[in-house]
Structures are given as C-alpha cells and as structure tokens.
Amino acid sequence: MSGALILHDLQQSEAEQFLPKDTAKYSLFAAAPAVRHCMGCFRCWFKTPGRCVIDDRAADFVALMSKHEELIFLSRLVFGGLSPDIKAVLDRSIGFVLPFFRKLNAETHHVPRFDISPLYKYIFYGPEITDREKETAKKLAVANALNLGSGRCFVSFFSSSREGMEALT
C-alpha cells in the first residue's frame, strides 16, 4: 500500500506533459482511449471475484486500486459527474467491493473486499461549471466514497485540466 493512484481522462500528450512523474508517489491510469463498457454480467462478483471478465487493461484496475491509499479522479465534469471515459473504468471495477450488503448510516452499502479505506479525491475540470453541477458532484463523491468502502472524499473544481493537474503537485 502506497501513494496515490490517478485515474485521468486526459489525452496522452497532455498527460505526459503535465501529470506528476514521481512514480514512487503516484501511479497513473489513463481512461482514454476509452475502455469497453460494462455489460452488466456481474461475473466480477460471481465467477472471477474482483476481476472483470472483459480482458482488456481495465480488468486489472481493482487490483491496482487495492494497492493505493489515495485514489484521485481527474475528470472532465459531465452533468455534475464523472466523464464517460472515467465512468467506463469505474463501472468495470465494482469488484472492488463484495456483492454482500452491510448497514452504514442507516443505509445499505456493499461490504468492502479489501481491508483498506482509501481517500477519494475528485478533481473536476471544465469551463462554465454551474453551482448546480458542483452540488451534484459533491453528493456523488459522498455516495461513491461510502459505496466504495470509505467515508473519506474531497472534491475540487477547476476551469481547465491544466489547472486541475497543477493542483495535484
């Protein structure tokens, strides 16, 4: 367990130029070009626990998540939520938690698969982000953090991806 995992939706050239290069501190995972969408089979829970059965680079994302104490989503804000590229990776990663239920804050949530409680940081970027979208994004982060086995999240907004990346370092 070490450092932070950055899941980002930047183009390769932008990522190479601006994302932190300190590999001891940060691991990077590019959501673009897009990985295949989840097909709703739930075999990541019941056939190959913790691993998506679609055999591409997103299949290892759960194992990668489990090795980091901080998860950073650097994402274009879309309707107050994550971008389609980032969401495609996360939809494929529900194996990070177990299918089983537990009660948390008087609500049902999934039981964690791993004995870790990562900090989830959301760095949203985009021009003309509205207050309404910001409010939705904050609620989404809280819900995600609970469902992904941790109550800890932090959300920030920037007008460009460049500014968001600068805030990382």
Partner: peptide, 15 residues
Amino acid sequence: LYVDGIPSHLLRLLD
C-alpha cells in the same frame, strides 16, 4: 444505477 450514476455507455450517448 451504476456506481451511483448513469451507466457509462448511456452517459457517453448523453454527452
């Protein structure tokens, strides 16, 4: 509901 949001293929369409 997928990870508290819209399934990614539908989200992509809406985007």
